[in-house]
């Protein structure tokens, strides 16, 4: 059974609109959702529930510090998404560089290193490494050092499996006749890569991005809950951790559900984009 086309169009338009709004929040949270400054009592309920109360100017109520929860959420979404996007970009860069070199050369050293890396990634729990890395830094260490080291662990854990996938694809494409023909016609390596190889990698790259980005979100949220979060970082994880400590308060519980929705949305953004892409491809085919 297929969804009627007009409904698909509406869904697609809605998804794009939401993506655009998220992008705006990520880039300029203060303009869209406000600045999270202490303005009212802690855990004032949202105006949606009690329109007659004094706190009705706060759309989602206030957090445990009496700040507008909407503003806190906007900043948190921005922070979490920025780390996730930056980390994903670093992973993709690493995966493409290592994968391309591995796929185009016969280096036994690189092959062994990647095999060991893959085994290590499977055998060593990523969370345990992150926790120990977060804990070894002295209090005097700069925020940048601590956070960069933690993000690097995530990046290093994601590179070996992705690089192997890319290397396998490049090797398969390089074996094909048209790449050989292109080279024999005098095309440069860069030209061949861009026109003959890259189009075959886009799907894999999209898949890697879709599976890596949620890991950054999950790591940030999880570490914050465990109390070994990124330093001086107000992400979605911190909101979850604080709401979890105040579950007795109904406003905190409501805010936790809103935060969970935001976490799911940020983690699923690549899946949504992939889905919209496949819908566009379906449309192009049907035309």
């Amino acid at each position: 059974m297929q969804t009627p086309r007009h409904r698909r169009d509406w869904k697609s338009a809605g998804a794009w609109l939401l993506l655009g709004f998220t992008a705006a929040v990520v880039l300029a949270p203060h303009r869209l959702t406000g600045v999270p400054e202490r303005q009212a009592q802690s855990f004032m309920p949202p105006s949606l529930y009690h329109s007659s109360t004094a706190g009705n100017e706060y759309l989602l109520g206030t957090d445990y510090l009496g700040r507008s929860f909407l503003a806190v959420l906007g900043v948190a979404v921005s922070a979490t998404a920025q780390v996730a996007l930056g980390g994903t970009a670093a992973v993709l860069l690493g995966v493409l560089v290592v994968g391309t070199i591995h796929g185009s050369t016969q280096s036994r050293l690189l092959r062994s290193a990647l095999s060991m890396g893959n085994l290590g990634v499977m055998a060593v729990p990523e969370a345990a490494v992150l926790i120990t890395i977060a804990a070894i830094w002295p209090r005097t260490a700069t925020t940048w050092h601590v956070n960069a080291s933690m993000i690097s662990v995530l990046v290093f854990f994601a590179i070996p499996p992705g690089a192997r996938l890319i290397a396998e694809r490049i090797r398969a494409v390089n074996k094909s006749g048209y790449v050989t023909a292109s080279r024999e016609c005098g095309a440069t390596s860069l030209y061949t890569f861009w026109y003959d190889v890259w189009p075959h990698l886009t799907e894999d790259v999209a898949w890697i991005a879709a599976s890596v980005l949620p890991r950054f979100v999950a790591a940030e949220v999880g570490l914050a809950y465990l109390g070994v979060e990124y330093r001086e970082f107000e992400g979605l994880g911190r909101i979850i951790a604080k709401s979890f400590n105040n579950l007795i308060d109904s406003t905190a519980r409501f805010q936790m559900l809103v935060t969970i929705a935001a976490i799911l949305w940020v983690a699923l953004i690549p899946q949504v984009v992939l889905h919209l892409r496949s819908m566009r491809a379906w449309k192009a085919e049907s035309i």
């Binding site: 879709a210 599976s211 980005l213 949620p214 979100v217 999950a218 949220v221 999880g222 809950y225 979850i240 979890f244 579950l247 519980r253 936790m256 559900l257 969970i260 976490i263 799911l264 983690a267 699923l268 690549p270 899946q271």
Partner: peptide, 21 residues
């Protein structure tokens, strides 16, 4: 599977806890 893979595990665990309480 891809969607479930992308959902942070803490979120699922917390949702179960909320349901429990």
């Amino acid at each position: 599977y891809p969607i479930a893979h992308a959902v942070p595990s803490l979120v699922v665990v917390i949702l179960f806890y909320l349901l429990l309480i």
